[in-house]
C-alpha cells in the first residue's frame, strides 16, 4: 500500500532561517501520526507544505499520491486542514460556521452529519452561539467539525490543542481516536504527553527530525537507568545534582528530579553521601520507567553534544 504522505529530503528556508532541514517521513493509511516539538521547530512550515500552501525549496513531497507542487489542485479537495491559531468566523454562529464550510466544499451538514457527529454532537447544544463566545475547547471542536465536514481523506491538524486546558485536550484526543478509523490524521503538538495517544510520532527540533517511531519504541530506546530524586528543597537539590561530577542529565519532573548518571553502574550510596554533604538530608532516590519527554530531552541533548 502506498503511504498517504511521503516526504523525501524536504528543505525550506525563509531568508536566513533554515526552517526545515532535509526532512524525510512517511505516514501510512489510517495512522494517527504526531509531529511533536516546541514552538519554532518547523511544525507549521511542514504542515503548510503538506497543505500545498508552501512549495519546497528542494526535495519531493507527495500527499495522497499527488505531488504538492504540480498537483496541488487535486490534493486540496481531499484535505481537511486546520491551521494553527485558527479562529473561525467569530461573528458567525456555530451552525453558520459549519454550514459555511460545508457549502464551500460543495456539501451540506446533513449529508455528512454521520461523519462529524462524534465531534459536532458535543457543540450542537450551542449551535446558535457566536463562535467568538465559545471557550477554547469548544472552539477547537467546532474547528475540527469544520475541517471534517467534506469527508477528507487526510486531516492535517496544526497544534489543535495549544492553549486548551487539560480536560479539553483529553477530550480532543479521545475524538481523534474515534475519527482515525475513517481518516488518516497528522497532528502537530508541543505537548510531549500527547505523544502516547499517537500510533507513531516524529520528534522535531530546529527543523530536524530527531526520531520517528511508535511511542512504546521511543520510550524503550531510552537505555540509561533513570532515577527519581526528591527533597523538599527542590532548588538546592537541582543545584547539587548539577554540580555532582558524575551527573549526566538533571530535569525537574512532576514531584521529583529525573537524574541520569554518566557511569553505566551508578553509585547511589555515593550520590546520597554527596547530597548529605551538600546539606540535603533524607533525600529519596528511586528507579523510574522513562517517559516520552525523558526520551525527547535525551535526544535533544545527544544532538546538541554531537554538534
Amino acid at each position: 500500500m502506498n503511504p498517504i504522505i511521503q516526504i523525501n529530503n524536504l528543505n525550506k528556508s525563509f531568508g536566513q532561517v533554515h526552517a526545515l532541514k532535509s526532512i524525510s517521513l512517511e505516514v501510512n493509511e489510517s495512522e494517527l501520526f504526531g509531529i511533536i516539538g516546541p514552538d519554532g521547530a518547523g511544525k507549521t512550515t511542514l504542515f503548510r507544505t503538506l497543505a500545498t500552501l508552501y512549495t519546497p525549496d528542494s526535495g519531493n513531497v507527495s500527499v495522497l499520491g499527488y505531488d504538492v507542487v504540480r498537483d496541488y489542485k487535486k490534493i486540496r479537495p481531499l484535505l481537511g486542514y486546520m491551521p494553527g491559531r485558527f479562529s473561525l468566523y467569530q461573528d458567525l454562529t456555530v451552525e453558520e460556521n459549519i454550514r459555511f464550510f460545508a457549502s464551500v466544499f460543495g456539501t451540506t451538514l446533513e449529508e455528512n452529519y454521520k461523519l462529524v457527529e462524534p465531534v459536532y454532537r458535543q457543540i450542537e447544544p450551542f449551535k446558535n452561539r457566536l463562535a467568538g463566545d465559545l471557550s477554547g475547547g469548544m472552539k477547537q471542536k467546532l474547528a475540527l467539525s469544520c475541517a471534517l465536514i467534506h469527508k477528507p481523506r487526510l486531516l492535517i491538524l496544526d497544534e489543535p490543542t495549544t492553549g486548551v486546558d487539560a480536560v479539553s485536550r483529553v477530550e480532543f484526543w479521545d475524538m481523534l481516536a474515534i475519527l482515525v478509523k475513517d481518516v488518516t490524521i497528522i497532528v502537530a503538538t508541543p505537548y510531549m504527553d500527547e505523544a502516547r495517544r499517537c500510533n507513531r510520532v516524529a520528534f522535531i527540533q530546529e527543523g530536524e527530525i530527531l526520531q520517528v517511531d511508535t511511542p512504546e519504541a521511543i520510550v524503550k530506546s531510552f537505555k540509561k537507568p533513570l532515577f527519581g530524586v526528591s527533597h523538599k528543597n527542590r532548588f538546592k537539590l537541582i543545584r547539587a545534582l548539577k554540580n555532582y561530577p558524575y551527573s549526566e542529565s538533571v530535569h525537574t519532573f512532576g514531584d521529583s528530579i529525573h537524574y541520569t548518571d554518566q557511569r553505566d553502574l551508578p553509585d547511589l550510596d555515593g550520590l546520597k553521601t554527596y547530597l548529605h554533604d551538600m546539606g540535603l538530608e533524607n533525600v529519596e532516590i528511586g528507579t523510574l520507567i522513562p517517559g516520552i519527554e525523558d526520551s525527547f530531552m535525551a535526544l535533544v541533548l545527544k544532538e546538541a553534544n554531537h554538534a
Partner: peptide
C-alpha cells in the same frame, strides 16, 4: 511556558525556584 521546549521549560522553572 506554553509552547516552550521541554528543556528550556525546565530552565525556566529553575529561574522560578531561584
Amino acid at each position: 511556558t506554553s509552547g516552550v521546549d521541554p528543556i528550556t521549560r525546565r530552565q525556566f522553572w529553575e529561574m522560578i525556584y531561584e
